[in-house]
Simulated scan of single mutants.
Amino acid sequence: MSCRAGSWMFAAAAVIVCLLDTAVFAEAKNFEDVRCKCICPPYRNISGNIYNINVTQKDCNCLHVVDPMPVPGHDVEAYCLLCECKYEERSSNTIKVTIIIYLSVVGALLLYMLFLLLVDPLIRKHDPYTQPLHNEEDSEEMRPRADAGPARGNTVLERVEGAQQRWKKQVQEQRKTVFDRHKLLS
């Protein structure tokens, strides 16, 4: 990878980190890494509600979380028995790091794809032995056999091109079979 592409990727990663930090800071006002979440169903004429508050695990119950208490003093115990309270923990730093790694990998793969799209025509040499596979019979008669010629496939690119040619040949054979069967059936 060239130095310019590496510096571009570093700049993109820095921008992503800044945006994520800004987004997390903006949402840090609403959410903490630890919280107690109480889900209270409807009770008599009071509609159900969800309460979130930052308290310790031992204080994670209806009496400490539900504020203001929607029921009068004598119904508090019955109301709190219906509520389901859970203590939740998460690591926002781990979430940020995971997202940054994911975005970096996707960005690196996109840069690599762009690099291959730009460099592939320069690397690929015109090979007189490869022809477009318009007609299977013509391409088989005109193309020399791989066993008869000199040893090919020394480089990775030549092996990939050979595999690509075999795949194209298989696709052409499948197309011919499907179209012949279609003609026979109709």
Results as ranks from 00 to 15, higher is better:
Leu116Pro: 01
Ala148Asn: 03
Arg124Trp: 00
Val160Trp: 00
Ile99Cys: 14
Leu82Arg: 15
Ile100Asn: 06
Ala28Gly: 15
Leu81Pro: 00
Phe115Met: 03
Leu184Ser: 12
Ile123Trp: 10
Ile50Ser: 03
Asn61Pro: 01
Leu103Asp: 04
Lys29Gln: 06
Gly153Cys: 03
Ala12His: 06
Ala148Pro: 01
Tyr51Phe: 15
Val71Trp: 01
Trp167Pro: 01
Arg152Asn: 04
Tyr79Ala: 02
Ala28Ile: 05
Gln165Phe: 03
Glu173Ala: 05
Lys183Val: 12
Gly48Lys: 02
Val24Gly: 08
Ala28Cys: 09
Cys40Ser: 15
Glu89Gly: 05
Asn49Thr: 07
Gln164Thr: 05
Lys29Leu: 06
Arg159Leu: 07
Lys96Gly: 03
Lys96Cys: 06
Val34Asp: 14
Gln164Leu: 09
Val34Gly: 06
Leu117Thr: 07
Val171Arg: 08
Gly153Thr: 05
Ser92Val: 07
Ser92Met: 04
Gly48Val: 03
Ala108Val: 08
Ile39Cys: 00
Gln174Met: 13
Ile16Glu: 15
Met69Asp: 12
Lys125Phe: 04
Met9Tyr: 02
Ile101His: 04
Leu19Trp: 10
Arg175His: 09
Lys58Asp: 15
Pro42Glu: 13
Ile101Pro: 00
Pro42Tyr: 04
Glu136Cys: 14
Arg35Ala: 09
Ile53Ala: 14
Asp59Gly: 03
Val65Phe: 02
Gly73Thr: 11
Glu140Asn: 11
Met9Arg: 03
Asp59Gln: 13
Thr98His: 07
Val171Leu: 11
Asn93Thr: 12
Gly153Asn: 06
